[in-house]
Design a protein around this nucleic acid. Structure first.
Lengths: 298, 298
DNA sequence: GCCCCCGTTGCCGAAGATGCAACGACACGC
DNA sequence: GCGTGTCGTTGCATCTTCGGCAACGGGGGC
């Protein structure tokens, strides 16, 4: 919006770290930018940037002002979304940061369902681990975060919280696939394992449980990609450990929950940034997602 | 601030109810205004005003947008205040809506004390009854409200809450002034009364108590001005009823609390609008006021 | 000492905002 | 029914503001 042009210049200079770089990103000349900044600093009665030989950096006053700008832009987005919603056609944009476990089933299905009702709403889905997800929320890069094992953070405002038990995942021909129902963890450890690597919360959760028993984990394959692990499981007699929400419907795959005596369920949370008010689109999508999660998680 | 110029036009048109009246207040021509409004509506993709024969009125979208503007302006004020506070000299502005009872002693003393520490801070003190005070807060015309008998309102966020017992106020020569300590209400009713009128919460409080006893109040003088009542009490053998915080130190005046069996204490509240963040100046003044009120009210 | 990147400034053209005058629409009073 | 006043709006001229261009001075790195 026009009236925010000047102030977004400030945000861009802060981000770029120098007037010249910011000018380039904004398709402006440095002179135009430096003037806008100076005018603004005059209006505020105080500089908001430190002039360093290698560029510009926000000072304390600038930090306050930059935060104000960010809030203002976000709030305007929210208002525009509310206004669009008044006219019946819901427009808007939803930005979601989620754990890898959810990109297989939950999120694509829900986005599809939502977009079937409101085709004018755009989506942006980023895969992030739990720490990155919080960062994305705080930087206003994501409206919502759907993550496993959320880190304790005052900035996180949960919209849904539930639990899911990890499942042993194998192909139908696997020895353990002859039975259904819970399986003991020690039975799994006797077979070849294909596990998520340490970039994923699932792995930490398993190791945390085994550490107390003094058992060491010796996976034959580990990967940061749950999809890769599943594809591997289809080809070999391997066992992977994944959460039910992330396991696709596939007759070639068999999954059995790990016995609750061996592994506590993982926490699954849908959250937004505390104190931020969501756009209509994001709020409604969150509502829908909560309904789904209530079906899937305990 | 420059970048808010356009949007404040909207606020002014909404307030004035017509482009022409708003233009006059803004020292602009109607043509300039109508264009700005049109541009903004184009940017938003929807009209925000209803065009009526007798002027302009905000529509639903406009209400949302106007609220956004109001919030932004208030937030910018807060940020500027915080920035000013960084430099050591506290600047800013505090706007207080208070009951008449407090303009005699409490508020002038506290304003003086505050301004002695921070001379750069300006004050605006409006006398409002409890209903008007809430309105003033909600319209962002006041940062703080210091009122008696606050109406139940979800918009009110109390920063302090206490009680004060009404006092019988008389001149030193009055028959009841020979004693100190609590006085029964029926003893007061036997003398000529000069009471606050129905525009003041004190009067309602008294009548509420008497109504349960079936006693009717027959004041010989009533007034909306507590100061007038005090001045009258100095000249005649009259009894007035006022709260201790509003009674000035004066050897010619004598006051005795009403017995607690006859009259419950009045509630005294310092409040802000819920969800609004105060400027540094207002927040610090509120802190100071709370300290004082803790000394005066139970 | 040289080079590169930095922010800044004077000057000029382009874009935007504003004022002036006039138009059409509607409400109100006679 | 018909002026009259007020309303928002529009075409055109004017003025302010914004941006681009080129050049300057300053500081870090080699």
């Amino acid at each position: 919006m026009k009236h925010l042009r000047t102030v977004t210049y400030v945000a861009e200079v802060a981000r770029a770290g120098s007037i010249r770089r910011a000018a380039e990103r904004l398709n402006l000349t440095p002179s135009a930018l430096t003037r806008q900044i100076q005018d603004l600093e005059y209006e505020l009665g105080t500089p908001i940037f430190e002039r360093l030989p290698q560029g510009m950096r926000l000072n304390a006053a600038g930090e306050l002002f930059a935060r104000h700008i960010r809030d203002q832009v976000a709030d305007l987005d929210r208002v525009r979304s509310q206004i669009a919603d008044l006219s019946g056609v819901r427009r808007g944009h939803v930005s979601l940061a989620c754990s890898q476990a959810f990109v297989t089933q939950v999120v694509p299905e829900e986005v599809e369902a939502y977009r079937a009702r409101f085709p004018q709403v755009g989506f942006m889905v980023q895969v992030r681990d739990h720490a990155q997800a919080v960062t994305a929320l705080a930087a206003f890069e994501a409206d919502l975060a759907l993550i496993l094992q959320p880190p304790p953070s005052a900035e996180l405002h949960p919209l849904f919280s539930g639990h899911q038990t990890l499942c042993a995942l194998m192909r139908t021909g696997h020895p353990l696939a002859s039975e259904t129902g819970p399986v003991r963890l020690r039975d799994c450890l006797g077979h070849a394992l294909a596990l998520p690597d340490h970039s994923l919360a699932i792995r930490h959760h398993i190791e945390h449980a085994l550490a107390r028993r003094g058992v060491e984990l010796r996976p034959v394959v580990e990967s940061g990609s749950l999809e890769f692990l599943r594809n591997l499981v289809l080809r070999e007699d391997l066992i992977s450990l994944q959460i039910p929400s992330g396991i696709p419907q596939d007759p070639r795959l068999h999954s059995r929950p790990i016995d609750l005596r061996d592994l506590t369920p993982m926490t699954l949370v849908l959250a937004q940034l505390r104190g931020r008010s969501l756009s209509v689109a994001a709020a409604k999508f969150a509502d829908q997602l909560v309904v789904r999660l209530n079906r899937e998680a305990v």
